[in-house]
């Protein structure tokens, strides 16, 4: 087995680990980590493929990986910002289990919203109550951390 094939196999195994993590873990940060492992495994495969030729190293996969690394960090950064905002709005660090739980969430929201509709005529976007709650929790926390600092 050549060095390139060896690393290609390692890349395959890393892909497996990444997929496994993405499916089994529910914490948002873990999922982002798993996506990053998955990404680097694909990059490793490309780098290994570039190394196969006896007489030269292929620069095209290298350029692809360089592009891919920057794209990966961009997507990771945005996903993390989104996760933070989601956490601030809901207090959760994982997504609702599946569609059912979101549907289970919907009627309550609907009722609250239709009541609000009647009262104000406008109707705040769904989820506003949760958001307020999250914001309050946040400010509590701030107070705590401020006290800690003093």
């Amino acid at each position: 087995m050549s060095q390139a094939a060896f690393y290609a196999l390692v890349a395959g195994a890393l892909t497996g680990i990444g997929i496994y993590g993405l499916i089994t873990q529910r914490h948002l940060l873990r999922r982002v980590l798993a996506v990053n492992i998955l990404g680097s495994s694909v990059f490793l495969l490309l780098v290994a493929l570039a190394r196969r030729h006896p007489d030269y190293v292929d620069p095209v996969p290298h350029a692809m990986v360089l592009t891919g690394i920057v794209i990966a960090v961009s997507a990771t950064a945005f996903a993390l910002v989104l996760a933070r905002r989601y956490h601030a709005a809901t207090g959760l660090t994982h997504l609702p289990e599946d569609e059912e739980s979101e549907e289970a969430l919907a009627p309550g929201l609907l009722n609250r919203r239709s009541l609000a509709d009647r009262r104000s005529g406008g109707g705040p976007p769904p989820g506003q109550p949760e958001r307020r709650q999250g914001a309050r929790r946040r400010s509590d926390e701030d107070r705590r951390s401020d006290e800690g600092a003093q």
């Binding site: 690393y7 990059f43 190394r51 990986v65 360089l66």
Partner: peptide
């Protein structure tokens, strides 16, 4: 990647 002759990467 350095082992695989990709120092840029």
């Amino acid at each position: 990647w350095a082992r695989l002759a990709a120092p840029d990467l």
